[in-house]
Simulated scan of single mutants.
Amino acid sequence: MAQASGNSAGKSSFGRWGVHLAVLFFVAIWTIPTLGILVTSLRDKDQIITSGWWNSFFSSSQTQAGRLGAAAGQQERDGKFVIEGNIFETPGASTVSAFGTRSAAPTQYPAGTAADLGDGETLQVNADGSYIHSSTKKFEGERGQRVYYSSTVPPKFTTENYYNVLTSENVGRSFLNSLTVTIPATIIPIMIAAFAAYALAWMRFPGRAILIAVIIGLLVVPLQMALIPLLEMYNGVGNLFGVPSKTYLGIWLAHTGFGLPFAIYLLRSYMAGLPRELMESARIDGASDFEIFMKIVLPLSFPVLASFAIFQFLWVWNDLLVAMVFLGTDQEHLVLTGRLNALLGSRGGDWEILTTSAFITIILPLIVFFSLQRYFVRGLLAGSVKGG
């Protein structure tokens, strides 16, 4: 018996460690990309191009190109014409390790070496970026000598990326537009689905099983297939009653329609698992279905309501397709995802804009998730329990 007990304890301990390791693994899988986006969004744009975010806390070596001073700044010394200056906009920002005058050999000469360029012309670039360009002949031309150099750059973090994105034209308005779309589009389906879920879980009426089957079937309908027919139906009804097509009402109804099947399915599964004795006791005391729903079922269903609110909020907040179809792309109604997409369209090569925009879009959903996450797992697990 003692040996069996010891084996059981060993298996139990191994199982606990296995679960913990699995949880840590999946947490890392989800957290590392988010951390990468955050770090990249705070990096200098030049360093983003040359190294990955995991190297952001270490000095990096970069090969860059620049130009020396133009001929207009030359001075004559001891029979030579000399141009002096610093290749860095901010002297001391980095350290030069090597330089060259040809793109094929950007590190041909070590820093501090006086390179012979021929015809009495020499160039010396020092480690601090200062240079001396001299020649026995007078320099000519409006543009200075092109020079390539390899420099060691310390890690640099900045909030300039966020300033550029947040101060872009109409970003604040688009943020408010997204809130205007998301909050009602989250609340409306919860209100409707809660009543429907209670009716399907605890009320007996003809066609109940068929309704449940239809709702489950609607879960697999692709949004892209139903979007255009839904828009045509909405426009037809709107024309009949004189309602404009591009309004918030349209997108609220669209997100409500797409979110209701999952909401009803999730809430019904949860409510069906509530103790039957509570319902029967309330009915014996003379409570109506509405009173049972409002005073018993709804307070007990808050965890699953919070779970669905997280799902719906994330979906609507990150949506671009439905917003563009029902609201269009005019400046007055454009949502945040559309605004940032337009910003990226004109500046697609700027990785700092991409990562900063991505992190800005997930800040509010993260706040909502962590505010309601204590109910999240409890609501989903409880929803998997089937009632009698």
Rank of each mutant, 00 (worst) to 15 (best):
A2D: 13
N7H: 02
R16P: 08
G18M: 13
G18V: 10
V19F: 15
V19I: 15
F25Q: 00
V27H: 01
P33N: 02
G36A: 13
D44L: 04
D46V: 14
I48A: 13
I49P: 02
W54D: 14
N55G: 12
S56C: 12
S60N: 14
Q62H: 09
Q64W: 10
Q64G: 12
R67D: 05
R67S: 12
A71D: 04
A71G: 04
G73C: 01
Q75H: 05
R77F: 10
D78P: 00
K80H: 07
N86M: 01
E89G: 11
S94F: 01
V96T: 06
S97M: 13
G100S: 11
G100W: 07
T101R: 03
S103D: 14
Y109N: 15
P110K: 10
P110R: 08
T113P: 03
A115Q: 08
A115V: 12
L117Y: 05
E121C: 06
A127S: 15
I132D: 01
H133E: 03
H133Y: 14
S134F: 02
S135M: 05
S135K: 05
S135H: 06
T136W: 00
K137F: 02
G144K: 04
R146Q: 12
S151C: 04
P155V: 11
T159M: 15
T159Y: 11
N164K: 11
N164P: 00
S168D: 12
S168V: 07
E169M: 10
G172S: 11
G172F: 14
F175T: 12
S178T: 15
S178Y: 07
T180I: 13
V181N: 07
T182C: 14
I183K: 13
I187H: 08
I190G: 03
A193L: 05
F195V: 15
A196Q: 03
A199D: 04
L200A: 02
G207W: 03
G207R: 01
A209L: 06
I210D: 00
I210Q: 01
L211G: 00
L211V: 06
A213L: 11
I215R: 01
L218A: 09
Q224G: 00
A226G: 03
L230M: 15
L231D: 05
G236I: 09
G242P: 07
T247S: 14
Y248A: 10
Y248R: 12
L249E: 08
F258L: 10
F262E: 00
L267C: 07
L278P: 05
E280A: 03
S281L: 09
A282V: 09
A282Q: 08
I284N: 10
A287F: 12
A287R: 08
I292C: 14
F293Y: 09
K295N: 10
V297S: 00
L298R: 07
L300Y: 05
F308V: 08
Q312W: 01
F313D: 06
V316P: 09
L320K: 05
F326V: 09
L327I: 11
T329E: 08
Q331C: 06
E332S: 14
L334F: 06
V335K: 06
T337Y: 02
G338Y: 05
L344E: 07
G345V: 10
S346W: 05
G348K: 08
G349K: 06
D350K: 09
L354Q: 10
T355L: 07
T355A: 12
T356F: 04
A358D: 02
T361V: 15
P365I: 10
V368R: 04
F369I: 11
F370K: 08
Q373I: 12
R378N: 07
G379C: 03
L381W: 00
G387F: 08
G387N: 03
